[in-house]
């Protein structure tokens, strides 16, 4: 499954539990930064070198509804895999209290860690067939940068949010966030660690609101 497929499923699963109970929808477009080139992997001391080029990770944004919402009573579980020496997906928004698993789908060790204030952890080296899959519960809101101690070029992001209403844009910046409660809220678009745009929104039941973040 490609990156786009995973992002699609990620967005769908994020929305599934709440679409049953709420019905306002926001859709629109986020102006994304210029696409990055594929990273250069340092292979200086590798006896075995695999050919090919690492996949570029397109810039994505997370659109979320900011406000005071009740905390989830169950622990949701999401995954960020390591596949072809990259984190997949490279950006994962989760609600506070979510458990994230880190399956290793490569035929080599990874060693994932984060020194971010929102979550410091180091899962160490583990075999792809080890069970349970190493996981962490993200219980503080904030941005968590994932790295691999073995592969310097690897970067992944987990955006831990207080809200259950969020979605990842597609690589063109388009989003659709459904199942939202009626009321006056701030709709935010997280673009990178320095840039979060915000628009006030009035959500009404059975309406589709169009919001762009230029």
């Amino acid at each position: 499954m490609g990156l786009r497929g995973l992002l699609f499923f990620n967005a769908i699963f994020a929305l599934l539990p709440i679409t049953v109970f709420a019905d306002a929808v926001v859709e629109g477009h986020v102006e994304l930064p210029k696409s990055h080139s594929a990273p250069v992997m340092a292979k200086r001391y590798e006896i075995v070198t695999i050919g090919g080029v690492l996949s570029p990770q397109p810039p994505l944004a997370v659109v979320y509804l900011d406000g005071s919402f009740p905390k989830s009573t169950t622990t949701a579980t999401k995954q960020i895999a390591q596949k072809d020496l990259a984190f997949l997906p490279s950006l994962l928004p989760v609600q506070v209290g979510t458990r994230v698993e880190f399956p290793n789908l490569d035929d080599t060790y990874h060693s994932i860690f984060s020194y971010s204030p929102a979550k410091r952890f180091d899962v160490g080296r583990y075999r792809p067939d080890e069970r349970p899959i190493p996981s962490e519960v993200f219980d503080m809101p904030g941005l968590v940068t994932l790295r691999c101690d073995i592969h310097e070029h690897m970067r992944g992001l987990i955006l831990v949010l207080n809200t259950p209403y969020f979605v990842v844009t597609n690589p063109e910046g388009r989003f659709r966030l459904g199942g939202l409660p009626s009321g006056h809220y701030a709709l935010k678009a997280w673009i990178d660690s320095k840039t979060t745009r915000e628009q006030p929104v009035d959500l009404k039941a059975d309406t589709v609101l169009h919001v762009d973040f230029p």
């Binding site: 250069v40 992997m41 340092a42 292979k43 200086r44 070198t49 050919g51 090919g52 080029v53």
Partner: peptide, 11 residues
């Protein structure tokens, strides 16, 4: 570190 195409690497 430089990658030239998918099969050439220089450092």
């Amino acid at each position: 570190d430089a990658q030239i195409g998918s099969h050439i690497y220089f450092f």
